[in-house]
């Protein structure tokens, strides 16, 4: 079943401008919250907000309406925020990355379960590796930047981060892999 946001994104793909208004009204509150969380700066978040919906409008023809429209918009928001961080060559304070993984007390939806699972699976990784995974996602760190922070060789960091991502996917019930 296609959710309402996905339906409206499909309408955007046909050039229907009113659909952009509806998508904005349905999602901008959450999108702005994500941008504020990642960027920690209201002015930057306001700039990024415009970019998110410009990208959504332009990307709408490639959107698969069988997928979650909210997740699609949230992904664009995360990517736009990370681009802002990288272009500003700055990183937000790293004291509470884990707090940025949403608080499960806020909801009882399926995504609550997904979030709890994600934290559980992160906890199965060595602490340093779990922290690196979260920093990569929420701060846009590169392999090289993680290596620099940890003082470890680049290839070593690349190898264990890749292994961590595979473990995470397996723990979260993603598809198996072939040889």
């Amino acid at each position: 079943m296609i959710d309402q946001v996905s339906h409206e994104i499909s309408r955007m793909a046909t050039g229907e401008r009113a659909a952009l208004d509806r998508v904005y009204r349905m999602t901008s509150g959450k999108v702005f919250a994500i941008l504020l969380r990642i960027l920690r700066d209201r002015a930057d978040a306001e700039d990024a907000l415009q970019n998110v919906y410009v990208k959504a409008w332009r990307g709408a023809p490639r959107f698969d309406p069988s997928r979650s429209g909210e997740a699609w918009i949230a992904t664009i928001a995360r990517n736009v925020a990370i681009d802002h961080l990288r272009s500003a060559r700055r990183h937000v304070p790293d004291s509470d990355e884990m707090d940025q993984i949403a608080d499960p007390s806020q909801t009882s939806s399926d995504q609550w379960q997904m979030r709890k699972d994600l934290l559980h699976c992160l906890e199965t990784l060595p602490a340093e590796q779990a922290r690196a995974v979260v920093q990569v996602y929420l701060q846009g760190l590169s392999y090289q930047e993680v290596a620099d922070i940890l003082g470890s060789p680049l290839n070593t960091v690349r190898t264990w981060l890749r292994r961590s991502l595979l473990k995470l996917r397996s723990c979260l019930g993603g598809d198996d892999v072939t040889e």
Binding site: K30, A33, I34, R37, I38, R67, S68, E70, A71, W72, A74, T75, A77, R78, Q100, I101, A102, D103, P104, Q106, T107, S109, Q111, W112, M114, R115, L118, Y137, L138, L172
Partner: peptide
């Protein structure tokens, strides 16, 4: 994308 965006959307 869906897994990770779901994790940051519950705010």
């Amino acid at each position: 994308e869906e897994t990770l965006s779901g994790a940051i959307s519950q705010i």
